[in-house]
């Protein structure tokens, strides 16, 4: 039913908002990835278009990549928590659950199991998308335990190395020495080893990247979703800078991402 449920009756169509109708007619629902996907961004009605993110926000770009990469957008549910990310994620034409602080992976555990009970022969993708604070600080226990329990869904951490949405406080993923709110003398320990934690906790597919290459970024997302369907938890740790809190001029955002790629976000 999943594809049909969003297609309006032909006579009803003209009363629906234009945005909705365009999504049905020109969106990625029910289409092959080769027809839509990241390579064709700009040629079809994307799942996220307008969003309230800051100018030059690298995170919003990555969120667009996530939604353009979904193998099955008409059967996907995203879950997030407080943070910048959900401002754009909630604008996507995919059901989004915004729960309490840091609870995304616990909530995903519940809904994934519920879907598997109710639709044993169908695939419904569950993806949690949250920031470094939501994943590795406040939601740490729920993130880790979902992995230990081998819950079959994808976790994506949008790591901007700071609490961007609450005004620039230090997070567990901030770099050592970073002078931020709540670390007025500089952070005195380094980034938490999220990737190693994920591997140790049993994730079957883990990627850590600065998404400078749109195809590679998309491929990682799709692999994470496919592996989560069949095998177990998957995790993508992605650098999505906060150009406001780290004072990166908009034209330099990409350069910053490339630098990160060379330093902390590569092998």
């Amino acid at each position: 039913m999943s594809l049909n449920y969003m297609i309006p009756a032909s006579k009803f169509k003209r009363y629906l908002p234009k945005d909705y109708v365009e999504l049905v007619d020109y969106g990625p629902f029910g289409k092959k990835y080769s027809e839509v996907g990241v390579k064709n961004m700009g040629t079809y009605k994307e799942l996220v278009e307008e969003h309230p993110m800051c100018s030059g926000c690298w995170m919003s770009y990555y969120i667009k990549i996530i939604f353009a990469s979904l193998p099955n957008p008409e059967d996907t549910v995203t879950i997030g928590t407080a943070g910048c990310g959900r401002l754009a994620i909630s604008q996507a034409a995919v059901p989004f659950i915004y729960g309490n602080y840091g609870d995304q992976n616990a909530m995903a555990s519940g809904i994934t199991r519920a879907f598997r009970l109710r639709f044993p022969d169908r695939q419904k993708d569950v993806i949690t998308i949250a920031g470094d604070g939501g994943m590795m600080d406040i939601g740490f226990s729920m993130t880790m335990h979902a992995w230990f329990r081998r819950e079959k869904f994808t976790t994506i951490m949008l790591d901007n190395e700071v609490y961007g949405n609450t005004g620039g406080q230090e997070s567990g993923m901030s770099v050592e020495g970073a002078v931020l709110k709540m670390s007025p003398k500089g952070k005195n320990f380094g980034k938490m080893p999220a990737m190693q934690l994920a591997i140790t906790a049993g994730c079957v597919y883990v990627v850590k990247m600065s998404p400078t290459n749109i195809n590679k970024a998309s491929k990682a997302i799709r692999r994470a979703i496919f592996a989560a369907r069949n095998l177990g938890p998957t995790f993508i740790h992605v650098y999505t800078s906060c150009n406001i809190e780290y004072s990166i001029p908009t034209p330099d955002v990409f350069r910053d991402a490339k630098e990160k790629e060379k330093r902390s976000f590569c092998i």
Binding site: A106, A114, H145
Partner: peptide, 25 residues
């Protein structure tokens, strides 16, 4: 009962309930 698990702690339990109930069970 069809599905049952021991969660990490109560916030995890109650959050997972909220997720599963949205899944229609």
């Amino acid at each position: 009962i069809k599905e049952y698990y021991r969660a990490e702690e109560e916030l995890g339990t109650m959050s997972a309930i909220a997720g599963a109930a949205r899944g229609g069970v």
